[in-house]
Amino acid sequence: MTEFNGRMQELLLVWTAGPMLSIALTLAAFMAANWLFAKVGRPLWMPPVLMAAVILAAAVAASGIGYETYQQGARWLTVLLGPATVALGVPLYQQMHHIRALWRPILCTLPLAASLAAVYAVGIAWLMDAPLSILASLAPKSVTAPIAMGIAEQLGGSVALTLGGLLITGVLASVFVDWGAKWMKISDDRMVGFALGLNGHAIGTARAFEISPTAGAFASLGMGLTGVFTALFLPFVFPF
């Protein structure tokens, strides 16, 4: 029996020497989350990214490989976030005719709304005496993940806290934009979609595609523009 335990220890060492165990866990959690999400009727408040993270956290804790070892292996996947950010430029180009057609309202709304998305949260946290590293982590909360991670690193925030805030923001924005549109009697899919993408990044965009293709297109636009605007201006204006 002790010999068997020794073999098991050895196996775990061999498995965690390379990145394959981390990659397998991440892929399996992603697929399980997608399956479960469809199974429980695609609820607004529990998007696939949240399910995947919960399943993955449970799997990492249960497997006993430890978070640090897991993260080292998972780097083989997360380095792809660089080219994935570049890839967002393609839909941005494909939506260019929408920007040209509606450039006035978009241009009027974007700078103020994208700035306020950061300012509200940072201001509230600052009033509640949160330290600088937390303010820096919250600032890019409405920006799509690959861009937000870059911004948080530049500002000196914690990438993990930024991603957590991002996830919560995306879920909340999906719900709040729906409520707000009902309350303000807005039925224009273009406005609702743009607001979903601007505030709720990829999670809001996924919600917008459920409303209509037009809402989805404007959400992608709002997400892309907010990402570029925030990435270009936040590092210059973040006051510390």
Binding site: L50, A130, I134, K141, A145, V159, G164
Partner: peptide
């Protein structure tokens, strides 16, 4: 994208203790 983001999101469950004193302000701000 969700697949590429999820390893980062998992981190929030494992480093939660570092922000223990500030969870309330973070939640209200969000």
């Amino acid at each position: 994208l969700v697949l590429l983001i999820s390893p980062g999101v998992v981190g929030v469950f494992f480093i939660a203790d570092r922000f223990a004193g500030h969870w309330f302000s973070v939640a209200v701000a969000l």
